[in-house]
């Protein structure tokens, strides 16, 4: 903190290394909005992007990604990663619609939690690198679901509650946004106010030190993975409500954007550093980027190139990681 004292006061509050990614990402959002609005003004003569209705609709779609990213952030802060998200999302959605009725939501969440706990146990107790273990769990979940559904989209439909949570509105604001907000509050609370949150950062910085300091490292890892799985399950259940049914590959579009959102938000991919506000801004950035590209009717090829370039360019501007060799 002593270094920032010499800078002008207003600037020092904004330009701490911790804030930098959030500020840059927010600036990027403004640029994306400006480009998109300029485009719609030129072609349609309206500022579609800036209308509250359109914004809320985009955020509603983005809330599914936001919930996945919230869970992913916990795991990335540990220095691990969860690659089982795609089929955790799909399996939760399929099981939730299959059970239906009042059990749908609890079943969806439990499936996610169960997958997350398996991930956590494998990583914490067998010490298998999370990258490969969650990959294997993803393959097993895919296998289970293909065997269960016969390779087709299941015929069962989402329950009214699931549909309400995904597409319903309270006072004109989508319910999904409230769910996302609740998840966000929960994650911020865990990270800031509970010992588990401090342990997560400690493990991400140096696991052996956290262990020697008496942190129950294995238990914390299982907890974080369990929560990450449960959030993927929640997202899958909502997604099934949004599209009224579950289908194969419904979670495929959530893995890489979730990781990208977390990293764009300034969380270090090797763990130990990051804040939730950044992840929130990262999700909004990715959602808006996607929606501007669809408005411009950008072909898939251009989308991929822009998507990749934005991630690289933003990371180049960040505090580019302390040199690992010291």
């Amino acid at each position: 903190m002593t270094t920032t004292d010499t800078m002008p006061k207003a600037k020092s509050r904004l330009w701490t290394p911790e804030n930098k990614p959030v500020v840059i990402a927010s600036g990027c959002i403004v640029v994306i909005l400006a480009i998109g609005t300029a485009y719609t003004l030129a072609t349609q003569g309206t500022a579609t992007l800036l209308s509250p209705g359109y914004m809320l609709q985009q955020l509603q779609v983005g809330s599914f990604l936001g919930i996945v990213a919230a869970g992913m952030m916990l795991v990335i802060l540990l220095g691990h990663i969860d690659l089982s998200v795609p089929w955790t999302v799909a399996a939760s959605a399929m099981m939730a619609t299959a059970f239906g009725g009042a059990a749908a939501l609890p079943v969806g969440l439990s499936v996610g939690l169960a997958v997350g706990l398996v991930n956590g146990l494998g990583v914490a107790y067998l010490r298998i690198p999370s990258m490969i273990f969650t990959l294997g769990v993803n393959a097993v979940m895919r296998g289970l679901m293909v065997a269960y559904t016969g390779g087709f989209a299941p015929q069962t439909a989402a329950t009214p509650l699931m549909q309400y949570l995904a597409v319903g509105k309270i006072l004109g604001i989508p319910v999904a946004l409230f769910v996302w907000a609740a998840v966000s509050v929960l994650v911020v609370f865990i990270l800031r106010k509970t010992p588990v949150g401090r342990y997560i950062f400690a493990i991400g910085n140096r696991e052996s030190a956290a262990y020697l300091a008496g942190a129950p490292t294995r238990w914390v890892i299982v907890f974080a993975f369990g929560l990450c799985g449960m959030m993927a399950g929640l997202s899958g259940t909502l997604l099934a409500g949004y599209s009224t049914k579950a289908y194969q590959g419904m979670g495929d579009a959530y893995l890489l954007p979730a990781i990208a959102a977390v990293v764009i938000g300034g969380t270090h991919i090797l763990g130990g550093r990051g804040r939730y506000l950044g992840t929130l801004v990262g999700v909004i950035l990715i959602v808006l980027l996607n929606s501007v590209l669809s408005i411009m009717q950008m072909p898939e090829a251009g989308r991929q190139v822009i998507y990749g370039s934005v991630i690289i360019l933003m990371l180049l501007f960040y505090d580019r990681g302390r040199q690992e060799r010291q």
């Binding site: 990749g308 991630i311 990371l315």
Partner: peptide
């Protein structure tokens, strides 16, 4: 660029896919 390999190649992979 001093970006971690996993995240750098995630991004360049998207670019290569776009070119393809």
């Amino acid at each position: 660029g001093r970006i971690q390999p996993i995240i750098a190649t995630l991004a360049t992979g998207a670019i290569f896919m776009g070119l393809a």
